[in-house]
Computed example of a mutant assay.
Amino acid sequence: MARDKGTEWAFTGKYWDSKEKGTYYCAACGNPLFVSDTKFESGCGWPSFYQPVSKTSVIYTPDNSHGMQRTEVQCGRCKAHLGHVFDDGPPPTGLRYCINSVILDFEKAKDAEKKFNDNEK
């Protein structure tokens, strides 16, 4: 799917409704892409974010397939197809990165309180 620019069915991916805190990475190469603090519920059925980790995390290419004009989002490192970006997102960017779960890996944020308590034992 990452190389043939496919899209998973809406509301079927493992991260579309995830509320866990952490970082999302490219499943193909491990590049950090998005943090959970920028994830929001868009109602589209795919994980949605309003900004990537950095300006170089993703690249943008025109996508005129399926009779539409869209902007494809690819991994900034390996160029795997991630999804598309639209200009109907929330502040502060006004963008909605609509990303396929299948190309994402996730690492939970470290629980600082648990770590502190474990060290106190």
Rank of each mutant, 00 (worst) to 15 (best):
E8Y: 01
S36M: 13
M68P: 03
D87G: 12
W16G: 05
G76I: 08
Y24W: 13
G94A: 11
K14V: 06
F49G: 03
N64E: 15
T56M: 07
G30R: 00
G43A: 08
F34Q: 10
G6T: 12
Y60G: 12
A28I: 07
K110W: 04
E113V: 02
H81D: 09
W16N: 08
Y97G: 09
A27M: 02
G6N: 03
Q74L: 15
A10M: 04
G67I: 10
P52D: 05
Y50E: 07
D63E: 07
T61K: 15
E113S: 07
H66W: 15
D87W: 00
S54C: 07
E113H: 03
G43W: 01
R77W: 03
D63G: 04
W16L: 08
C78Y: 04
G67Y: 01
E41F: 08
K121I: 13
E41I: 07
H66V: 08
S48W: 02
Q69W: 03
H81A: 11
I103P: 06
F34G: 09
P32Q: 07
K19Q: 11
K79A: 14
D63N: 03
Y24R: 10
K5T: 11
V58F: 10
C98Q: 10
K14M: 09
E107I: 13
G13Y: 04
I103T: 10
K121N: 14
W9F: 06
G30K: 02
S101A: 13
D118T: 06
K114P: 00
A10G: 01
L95N: 05
G89R: 01
S36I: 11
R96Y: 04
W46S: 04
W46P: 00
